[in-house]
Nucleic acid binder design. Sequence first.
DNA 1: AAATTAAATATTGTATTCAATCATTGTATC
DNA 2: GATACAATGATTGAATACAATATTTAATTT
Lengths: 230, 230
Amino acid sequence: MYKSSTRSFPVYDSLRKAIIEQALKPGVKLPEDSIGETFSVSRTTVRNALVRLDAEGLVDLQPNRGASVADPTIEEAHDIFEMRQCLEREVMQRLCKMDAKPIVKALKAHLAEEKKYLDVDTTRSIRLAGEFHILLAELTGSKILANYVNEIVSRCSLVLARFAQAHSAQCGLEEHTEIIEAIEAGDAERAASQMHTHLHGVQDRALLNPDDQDKDNVSDILARYVTHNS
Amino acid sequence: MYKSSTRSFPVYDSLRKAIIEQALKPGVKLPEDSIGETFSVSRTTVRNALVRLDAEGLVDLQPNRGASVADPTIEEAHDIFEMRQCLEREVMQRLCKMDAKPIVKALKAHLAEEKKYLDVDTTRSIRLAGEFHILLAELTGSKILANYVNEIVSRCSLVLARFAQAHSAQCGLEEHTEIIEAIEAGDAERAASQMHTHLHGVQDRALLNPDDQDKDNVSDILARYVTHNS
DNA sequence: AAATTAAATATTGTATTCAATCATTGTATC
DNA sequence: GATACAATGATTGAATACAATATTTAATTT
C-alpha cells in the first residue's frame, strides 16, 4: 500500500493514526521541525509524509504556511459522507454478487473481535468498528475500491472529530450484524439499504447538532504515537 | 487543488499531463536526476512531485528503486474501469436531481469545443473528451466527487495507454450528446444507462484485445511538456 | 561459452545548509 | 487606545552533500 522511503513511513503512519483516533484534532498545526524531532528524522523525511497525507485529504498543506490537520467545512463534511454512501453501496452490491460463504466467515470473525473489546478498550473498539467497513471493501477483491473506502473512512473520522460531540457518533454493533445477515442472504437491496441506514445514523448524530471543538498542541500528543505499533 | 511548493507544481503537472496524454508510457522509469535537469530543479523538488503522483496512482514508487509510470495489470485495469462506472453513475444521479438549465448550458458549451477540434487537433480532442467527464463531476458541486472522478479518469488514460491499440478507444461525440439530452430530460435512469454504455464501449475496445506496448526514454518526451501551459 | 563474483557506476535515501517567506512582538505615530 | 510600521524570530522552500542501495560492467572461474 504505502511505498517510498523507509524512514518516512513511520511518520506517515503515526500521524495518520493520530488523526484518525482524533488525538490530533482538525486545524492543529503540524510543524516539520517538531515532528522531525519527535521521530528523530530530518524535515525532508517529515515533508514526504505530509505531502502524502495532503494528497489523501487528511492534512492541509499551504505554501509557505506549512501543514495542519485538515479542517473540513460543514459542506465538505456532507460531501464526504455522501461519497462514503456511494462507495459503500458499491461494496454491498459487489459482495452480494459473490460467494457469501467465505465473506460471511471473515466478517463474523471480525465481529467477534469487535464484541470482545466493546466496553473494554474504547480506542480499539472505535478502530475495529472502522475496520469493519474496510474489511467489507477488501472482501470485494478490488484493491482500488478498498483504497478509496479506506481513504473515505479516514476522512469521516476527521469529520466526526470536527463536528460530533465526543463519541456520540459510533458504529452500532447490531447494525453490523444486520449487514452481515443481508449479505448472507445474498440480498443486495437489503444490504445496501441497511448500510445506508447505518451510515446515515452515524452522519446524523454527527452533523445534526454540530459541536465546535477547540484545538491544542502537538508534541506531547504525538509522542504517544511514536512506534505505537498495531 | 494542488498545494505545496511552487517549484514542484510544474514538475507534477507536466508529468501528469505527459502520462495522461500517453507520451510517457506505463512502465517507463522516471529518474529523479534527469527530470530535475529537465525542469532545472533539485531532486528534492522532483521527489515531492513523484510522491504525490504515487499517491494518485499514476506513478509507482518503490523503495530504493525509484519511480516509474504506473503499469497496471489487466485485473487492475478492470478494477479501475469498474470504479469509474461507479463514480460516474453517481455523477449522473446527482445531476439529474439538480436544476438542468445551467448544467446543460455548460455541457453544451463544452461539446461545441469538442466538435471544434475534432479531426483538427487530435491531442486536444482527446483531452477535451476526458474533460467532459470531469466537467460533469464538477457540475455536481461536490469537490470530493470531482476529485475522485478526475483521478479515476486519469488512471483510465493510463489503462488505455497500456492495453488499447493506438486511440482505438476514444469517447464518441454522439454519446456525449445523448448523455446531455438525458440530463436535460431529468431522466436519471436513462442518463446513468447512457453513461454506462458509453464507458463500457470504451472499456471493451480497450480491454477485449489488449495490445502490449513497448516503452522508451523520458527526457526528450518530457521536454515537450515543460511549461506546456494551456 | 555460461555462470559467478567483484568492482565500478549510477541512483536513491536522508540530513544539512542557506535563502525566502511568514508570524510576532515592540515601537512610533496619530 | 488604536493603527501602522519595523525589526526580530520562527518556519518553510529548495539545493547541496554524503551515505546507502541498486545496477551495470568487467573479470574470473568452471
